[in-house]
Every structure is written in structure tokens, then in C-alpha cells.
Design a protein around this nucleic acid. Structure first.
Lengths: 197, 197
DNA sequence: AATAGACTATCTACTAGTAGGTAGGTTGTC
DNA sequence: GACAACCTACCTACTAGTAGATAGTCTATT
């Protein structure tokens, strides 16, 4: 039945997410999913014939979710937007074992199927463009320092956040992460804005 | 023979490094090494009985190399030290396919053997301590802003650099990386030091 | 309303290939 | 002849993916 079908498909996708973000593309198998969900491996293949299909679907879902999220925060000011962006990342590791899709999949990049590589680039570019847009807008408003290189700053933000998630898995200190987000934002601020010397 | 033995052992270790930094611990096999070096898989096991042994040896070597490197730069000023630290990272990706051991192995962390996990933590802590020491020293000298949180700043530096290497593999723009290093350093500087507003 | 045909979701049982690892034999050098 | 460095040949465990069967459900035609 349709409802049941969707439920199973969704369940598989949820489990896949968990596994991708903890163990990576090549670190989980359909067998792992099978054992978690309690149906046979062949039945997972029925829903997602290839592993590629499953992971591709997951990444596409993430892109859509990010676009929805960016609509939700569109009326907030630029500082708060970046703050929310950081919190979104932080929330990923609530249970201390997941990192972000970009951090995981870009580490594995050369061993990913081509199709998945392309999707990973899609996801990255979506987030980077949003960051660039937010930073540019903040500079125009006079909240962020005008001498910032927009692209580099976006890269610094995204790499620091995804790197921090990995550190969290090892060191476990969510407060440290929050501090880093603040540190990052203060880095963007006009020097006389809040914590200028 | 001793000389030949060491040559082969070193060759294996070099190939392992290449493979670890491009494909990750679970992304390469003894078969890959065998095909590159041109001796049989069983002979690789003769030199490094377990994959764990091989990778453990590699990480320990990295720790030693880092300590040697830090001695080499010990007489430079703190800004230059950080600059060299960045360049050391940048050099890793000269051919655009390698990332840093910390970046790779911390992504895979939960699927690594326990022994290797411990070593990864060793390596990370070695580099973080060096960074903390350098930052603290720079603050004491009055070169770096005194309101910096030393630990967080060290984390930001190391995660940004390792994250940037991954981005480089995808976007390929080493100049961007150099720019980011400069950006990071300027973030540390006292606000009136060089590029104050 | 009965029924035939198709569809969904699952199963068991399999393939071909690769992984890490080992036992035991061969070869070349001191 | 001892031993280091290599080999062949194997093992077990796991991988992604496929083939074919089946129980239950939905749908269209009579």
C-alpha cells in the first residue's frame, strides 16, 4: 500500500542519513540498514535499487531542506542568520556522533561515484552561495567589515563549522562549539561594532 | 637484506600515506598497495601484518615529523610560524588530491579501530598544543589580540585549514587557500596592527 | 459480486567481487 | 644453512546487486 510503502522508504532514508553522517558513504552497507529496519537486504534494494540512488536521494533532500530553512530565516538580520546557520550545524551533532554531510562526503570525495560527487558539489554550492549572499548583504548594511573577501569568508565559515563537528565527536564540548560560532561572527563584524579593541 | 627491507617498508609507508590521504582508512586496501608497489599482497602483510599496524606507524611518523618541523620553525616569529603552519598544510595538496591526516581520519573516526582512534587524538592534540602555545606567545608579545580565546582560536585554525584542503580538491584554487591563510592570520592580529579598519 | 490480471512489498537464495589475513613453500644473499 | 623477503594458494567474512518465488492488495472486466 501507498502509505506503508512511503513509510518504509522514509524509514530507510532516515537510517541512511544516520549511517552516512556517522560512518560515511563507504562506511555503511545495505546490510546495516537491513539489520536496523528489520527487513531483508533485497527489500532495501527494491526501494532503492542502487546505493547511489539512496545516497543521491538523501543529498537532494538535504538541498531542498536547506532551501526551505533559508526561507524560514529570510526575515532575520544577517548576524542572526549566520548564528542560526551555526546552530543548524550544531544541532546535527546533538548526540555527538554525526557530522555534516558536506564534511563527511567531501572527505570521501575521490571514492564517491561520479553522480554523488556532482550532488555533493551542488549541496556545497547551495550553502556557499547563501553564505556569500548573507555576508554581502551584511557588508552593504554596514554590519560586517567591508574589507572582507566574501568568498573566502564563506569558505572559512563552512569549513570551520564542519571541522568543529568532527572535533566535537572526539572532544565532546558543545559549549566550545557555540563559542566558536560567536568567535566566527565577531570576526565578521565591523571592528568598532561590538568587541573592537 | 636490511637495506632492501627498509626500502620496501618505506615504499609501502609512502604509498599508504598517499592512499590514506586521498581515499581514507577504509577507502584503500592492501591490494591497492600491492598493485602500486608491484609485490604481492601477502608480502605487504609480511612487513605490516595488520592494516592497523601500517596506519598506526604512519600516524606515529606524522607526529614525529610535526615535532621536527616545529623545531625547525622555533626561531621564527609567531606570525611567521602560523604562516608556515598554513603552508605546510597547503603543500599537502600540491597535486590536488590529498587532504590532511587529521581531516581525513577524524571524518572516519567512528569506523576506525580503537588503537588508530587513540593515535589520531594524539596527532590532533600535538598540533593543537603547538597552535595554542604559538597563539599564547603571540598574545604575550602583543602581536595577537589579547581577547582571543586561545583554545577556540587553535580549533578554528586547524579546522579551517583541514576544511580548505577538502574544498581545494573540489574547487582547485590554491591561491584561494593562500588568501584564507592570510585572512586567518589577520583575524588574530591586534586590530591596529596591519589591516585595521 | 466474482474473478482475472497486475502490482507492491517482501522473502530466500544466489552471484561475482573484494576485504583482511594466514599457512607454507621458494629464492637469493650473507 | 640460516634467514630475510618474497611467493602461491588459500580462508572467512563481507560487499553490492540480482533472480525468482510468494502473499496480499488493488483494479478493471464480466
Amino acid at each position: 500500500m501507498n502509505v506503508k510503502e512511503r513509510a518504509t522508504r522514509k524509514r530507510i532514508l532516515d537510517i541512511a542519513e544516520e549511517l552516512i553522517l556517522t560512518r560515511g558513504y563507504n562506511g555503511f552497507s545495505y546490510q546495516d540498514i537491513s539489520e536496523t529496519i528489520g527487513i531483508r537486504k533485497a527489500s532495501i534494494h527494491y526501494h532503492y535499487p542502487l546505493k547511489e540512488n539512496l545516497v543521491d536521494r538523501y543529498i537532494r533532500k538535504q538541498i531542498i531542506l536547506f532551501k526551505m530553512w533559508s526561507k524560514q530565516v529570510r526575515n532575520k538580520d544577517n548576524i542572526e542568520k549566520l548564528n542560526q546557520f551555526g546552530i543548524m550545524y550544531l544541532n546535527l551533532s546533538r548526540h555527538g556522533i554525526k557530522i555534516c554531510p558536506i564534511g563527511m562526503l567531501s572527505a570521501e570525495f575521490p571514492v564517491l561515484p561520479e553522480k554523488i560527487q556532482t550532488r555533493v558539489i551542488n549541496l556545497m554550492e547551495t550553502e556557499i552561495q547563501w553564505l556569500e549572499h548573507t555576508i554581502t548583504s551584511g557588508i552593504r548594511e554596514g554590519v560586517f567589515a567591508k574589507q572582507l573577501n566574501v568568498h573566502r569568508t564563506a569558505l572559512i565559515i563552512i569549513t570551520t563549522l564542519s571541522g568543529m563537528l568532527k572535533m566535537l565527536r572526539i572532544h565532546k564540548d558543545p559549549n566550545e562549539m557555540k563559542g566558536v560560532i560567536q568567535e566566527l561572527i565577531s570576526f565578521l563584524l565591523k571592528k568598532n561594532n561590538k568587541r573592537g579593541e
